[in-house]
């Protein structure tokens, strides 16, 4: 595969991760468990949407067909979205959201500290800016994992179940394909297989501190890099794309 195509694929995956997770988090707006938390979680959503905008814009430039951030964010078919499956899972209760967020933040953090060293200057610059925010996301999702894990009996049971449920979607984060191999060879991004054990150690430590058990590694779902999604994705897109599909070609 040529470098340009691999980079385009790679950027879309990163952008889709941020866009879809930011989209899911934004659903909490006005419905959070406490006012302060409502504000805080929206900050994370805004950061992620910000990352997706930079990444889509750059992806459009790399592709060279004049596509804007919105063309890429709103006007693809489901199979063309390459976000990790974990990002499209329903918010559930707050513990489900926190479990999903912590596992993703831990991954995203380890990924972006490597991307800061990317041989691609634009990727490195986007990562350098984003990592400051991601570090904060991680800090907050750890804080909440601790509070829910080591809080009340009820919260402990709920967050443990949440981690158990989401666990099967974590393998998908580390699956690599031909694009990834080109990206690694070109020094644009890290080998996810090298990140995986570090991620596991970090998660284990956080869950242990939160008095939680690390779920067993059983069967893992995958398919996001081929655009094979969960049933949830279609519903996300039907809202996300509603305006763009109903009124094609309009400025908003």
């Amino acid at each position: 595969m040529e470098k340009k195509q691999a980079l385009f694929n790679y950027l879309l995956r990163l952008a889709d991760n941020s866009a879809i997770l930011g989209h899911k988090l934004s659903e909490w707006c006005g419905h959070g468990p406490e006012l302060e938390e409502d504000i805080a979680i929206i900050n994370t959503a805004l950061d992620l949407l910000g990352h997706s905008r930079s990444l889509y814009t750059y992806a459009g430039e790399v592709e060279g067909k004049g596509k804007t951030e919105d063309d890429l964010a709103f006007l693809r078919i489901e199979r063309e979205y390459k976000n990790a499956l974990i990002t499209e899972l329903p918010n559930g209760h707050y513990g489900d959201t926190i479990a999903r967020q912590y596992l993703f933040d831990q991954f995203n953090y380890l990924l972006f500290i490597e991307l800061e060293k990317s041989s691609d200057e634009t990727v490195a610059a986007i990562a350098a800016k984003a990592i400051k925010e991601i570090r904060y996301h991680l800090r907050r999702s750890i804080e909440w994992t601790l509070r829910l894990g080591d809080g009340t009996e009820e919260s402990h049971a709920k967050i443990q179940e949440a981690f158990d449920d989401v666990w099967a979607y974590t393998g998908d984060l580390f699956v690599q394909d031909d694009s990834d191999l080109v990206i690694i060879a070109e020094g644009i991004g890290p080998d996810l297989k090298a990140i995986q054990p570090i991620w596991r150690e970090k998660v284990k430590a956080t869950l242990a501190e939160a008095t939680l058990l690390i779920p067993e590694d059983g069967w893992m779902h995958s398919g996001s890099k081929q655009g094979r999604h969960t049933e949830h994705m279609g519903h996300i897109l039907s809202e996300l794309q509603y305006m763009q599909r109903t009124y094609p070609g309009c400025e908003w």
């Binding site: 406490e34 006012l35 302060e36 938390e37 504000i39 805080a40 900050n43 907050r140 804080e143 509070r147």
Partner: peptide
């Protein structure tokens, strides 16, 4: 002012509420 369960969360919340 704001509400928070402890000092750490108070600082986090203060960052998110008062330094946006």
């Amino acid at each position: 002012s704001l509400h928070a369960p402890d000092a750490e969360m108070a600082i986090s919340n203060a960052r998110d509420v008062y330094t946006r």
